[in-house]
Design a protein around this nucleic acid. Sequence first.
DNA 1: CCGGATCCGGTTAGATACTG
DNA 2: CAGTATCTAACCGGATCCGG
Lengths: 232, 232
Amino acid sequence: MTNASYKQFCPVAMAAEILCTRWTVVLLRELVAGSTRFNELRRGVPRMSPALLSKRLRELEAAGVIERQRLTDAPEIEAYRLTDAGRDLQPVIEAIGMWGQKWVETEPTLENLDPELLMWDMRRNLNTDPLPQARTVIEFLYSDLPPAQRKWWLIVESDGTVDLCHIDPGFDVDLYLNTNLRTMTAIWIGLSDVRSAVANGTLLMTGRRDVGNSMQQWLGLSPFAVQEKLAS
Amino acid sequence: MTNASYKQFCPVAMAAEILCTRWTVVLLRELVAGSTRFNELRRGVPRMSPALLSKRLRELEAAGVIERQRLTDAPEIEAYRLTDAGRDLQPVIEAIGMWGQKWVETEPTLENLDPELLMWDMRRNLNTDPLPQARTVIEFLYSDLPPAQRKWWLIVESDGTVDLCHIDPGFDVDLYLNTNLRTMTAIWIGLSDVRSAVANGTLLMTGRRDVGNSMQQWLGLSPFAVQEKLAS
DNA sequence: CCGGATCCGGTTAGATACTG
DNA sequence: CAGTATCTAACCGGATCCGG
């Protein structure tokens, strides 16, 4: 149940016992980003088995990093929330991510593409300010993916809420984007940008010109895109 | 050989693949602190098996965090040095250590006592400024330890070099310290201090009064002792 | 001493299926 | 929705041994 200790009194070692087990830092990124429910966390760490996720959540609870809340009106549903100690992990996760953005080579990163993670991240960080006040629908078509993962829709309601669908919601589409997953991911993590992807033909836009022209603005980038990459 | 990937393009996940495997962060702390040789690193991570240490060093080399240098005058001896990317991990290790100091509970920390790690850390951070110009010898006696680990000597030469012995060097001793390992470790990581340990009788001093009175100054503390602990 | 390699048993993690 | 159960594969710890 409990992990083997490093048997070192050094705070780095004590913290590493809690943080540096497999999947834990990735899970913490998801918690710091605001996910609270079991299946919400699963979407953020889809390759982690539910058994291990459950185990890690129990370990983080025992370490005082998260606490579980039972909703009074739905006692069978639990929510996992960061404690003060957990919220204080944000600088740690950020430091790890900034180092990764700066020093991990590009190629291995772009071998780990995942449309659902990308669309989920984009939904989370979308900036609605440059978009029209009315409901706006943007269709993403990844021409290199199989049918089940090919089409995604971002729906920005007039009140600013953002929804993500991968089945056709049936609304009129304001902007069609035709691209491939690698191009869109590279833009998202700051290795490319909308202008150059359009220029070299890997990103095609159809529909409302105003929505297309402001894409670099409404597409909030990865929080780590601000960090310049130094690795090749 | 290579670790299983998280298959996420997120920089946090990419960095975690390199950093968050067992022992890696503790090993990096040792490298950031300045150790370069295989057996020097072993002293800093004594419970890590040499096979795993060797494997981790190869992985960190492949990740571009360290590089090995063969000394030209002794080509059979290798040195492991941080690259630019490796030196840039210092803020990450510091952030982890500061979080650990602030939030990991005291009791588990003080169950991981180790006199060799403690003395080694003290040697590394000792502040020679408040000490006499002549050679100064300080004897540590841990009354709770078995004979083989009971006595240690710090020898500060007049040129400022510091040596650590655990066999009697035969020099005249300027200051005798009689304490226990838990007390000394608590002082080192900032959970106690020299004054209160002397006051409650867990630290006894004999010998030169001036060297004893300046102990809180020449005993450079753990780099993380500046961080206040909030956990119980 | 230095820098590992090898072997073996126990623990951890992954894959898949299934349940209240 | 929120997890367990089960089985297998990978990893790790500890001891021992080896070549320079």
